[in-house]
């Protein structure tokens, strides 16, 4: 797919307009997303070097969505996901656990974590493992705050907190490390990305590398970028985690999914996040 651009998808779609009678104007490139009138996002960027032989340009999922969905994300008062980030902020400032600490006890304010989202998943030397933001939150709760029952990996409270941490990092350029101590995990994630799962035998690449911009029935396939997560989906009217979305994708291949927080999904998250190196953190975003 070297050199493939969305224009190819638009041209192909144009041929089908008379048939399906639908508007294809929503997969157009060149528009810019500016949040609240002053926070500029990078929604198109040259693909990271390791990807250049397959994909030349990377696109945020925002590019593939309708005008209405795009607009919702451009203003925090219109973005329903910000309500979840606000709930995360309340939790951030509330003491929990036997140590009597809140997140703010150590981190002062949420903005002090502005650099987190853009660099995760990342290597945790103390634990000798790749950690996601969710794993880091659980670590803080259990190892520093004395929380007996930390947030479930995909719980509402976790998705709220993850939404907060993404929100304060918006506009920062994704820059996830892929070499050094994470190299093995990254390679595992790459292998998963190209494996055809389930009775429909679909890999991530089948839809999101080789068919982005194309309609699959009524939906435009995106590049599967995760820079917008947690993502508020109009489909379920809530913020959704990366692993929750991965699980839904594998389920939709008529496959047996991996669990949220599993080593497979941590590796896949690292790999997919790195395919977005060069885009900006957009979470919590709005998607369909």
């Amino acid at each position: 797919m070297t050199g493939k651009t969305l224009l190819g998808g638009v041209a192909a779609a144009g041929l089908a307009v008379g048939v399906a009678g639908i508007g294809f104007a929503d997969i157009r490139t060149g528009d810019s997303l500016v949040i609240n009138g002053d926070l500029a996002m990078i929604t198109e960027a040259p693909a990271p070097e390791f990807l250049q032989d397959r994909v030349t340009t990377i696109y945020s999922g925002w590019v593939f969505r309708t005008d209405e969905t795009r607009a919702m994300q451009a203003d925090d008062f219109d973005n329903p996901a910000m309500l979840y980030a606000e709930q995360g902020l309340t939790a951030f400032e509330t003491a929990m656990g036997s140590e009597g600490k809140s997140c703010a006890s150590c981190h002062e304010n949420a903005e002090s974590l502005a650099g987190v989202r853009a660099s995760y998943p990342k290597w945790d030397a103390e634990h000798g493992a790749v950690q996601t933001v969710e794993m880091q939150i659980i670590e803080c709760q259990t190892e520093r705050m004395g929380v007996a029952e930390p947030y479930g990996y995909d719980s509402q409270a976790m998705r709220n907190m993850a939404s907060l941490i993404a929100s304060v990092g918006r506009g920062q350029t994704i820059n996830v490390a892929i070499d050094g101590p994470v190299a093995e995990t990254w390679a595992f994630g790459e292998e998963i990305y190209y494996t055809k799962y389930g009775q429909l035998e679909l890999s991530c690449a089948d839809c999101h590398e080789n068919n982005y911009g194309n309609l699959i029935r009524a939906d435009h396939l995106s590049q599967g970028q995760i820079n917008g997560f947690p993502a508020y989906r109009l489909k379920n009217a809530n913020v959704n985690s990366v692993h929750g979305r991965f699980r839904g994708c594998i389920r939709d291949t008529r496959g047996e999914t991996f669990a949220v927080g599993s080593p497979e999904f941590v590796a896949l998250e690292l790999y997919v996040a790195s395919r977005g190196n060069g885009l900006t953190v957009e979470g919590p975003s709005v998607r369909n």
């Binding site: 055809k196 389930g198 035998e201 389920r251 008529r254 999914t257």
Partner: peptide, 19 residues
Amino acid sequence: PSFYRISGYTRPGDAYTGK
């Protein structure tokens, strides 16, 4: 997809349950 084949898959599921 193969519409009339029932073997040779990686992690096939129970229809669309994810299980």
